[in-house]
């Protein structure tokens, strides 16, 4: 409530509406920064070579962790980007749903139908199968 009155009093521009978020961001960064500095100052600093090794359950660490990785994760991320864009498209429609009425429902049904067809193709082509 406090911030609402603030933004209307200051200026009714869109940028001023987002001022609380900037302030919140500064506070959040300050909080994390303070705790990080505090733990750095308060904690002991006894750094040995073995301690600074990558942890591998007690045995000597072998090689580099940054190696080629299963492509399935990348595929999942790409599919997510595709579908998430569709979900974002649905937001403005959902807000204006009542004004658009049946016409909006039919249009969106068509959109969802195309989306589902693509989805069926993805499933059939085995993109989501793990061996």
């Amino acid at each position: 409530m406090i911030f609402m009155e603030v933004s209307s009093a200051a200026a009714n521009t869109t940028v001023a509406n987002y001022l609380p978020i900037v302030i919140q961001f500064i506070f959040a960064a300050g909080f994390v920064g303070t705790t990080m500095v505090a733990t750095h100052l308060l904690g002991p600093k006894l750094q040995t070579k073995k301690k600074l090794q990558a942890f591998e359950s007690g045995i000597k660490s072998v090689g580099n962790a940054r190696q080629p990785f299963a492509v399935k994760y990348f595929l999942t991320a790409i599919l997510f980007v595709l579908f998430d864009v569709e979900v974002i498209f649905l937001y403005p429609w959902a807000v204006n749903f009542m004004e658009l009425g049946w016409q909006g429902v039919i249009t969106m049904g068509l959109f969802m139908g195309l989306l589902l067809a693509g989805f069926v193709y993805i499933v059939k082509s085995g993109a989501l199968d793990w061996e």
Binding site: K45, Q47, A65
Partner: peptide
Amino acid sequence: KLVMKEGLTPNGADKFLFNLAPFVVMI
């Protein structure tokens, strides 16, 4: 107890990103 503990950054780590990650998650 956790505040009083040592905050290590391992040798092999990317120092900047390693310390930036808690900021991103928390903010």
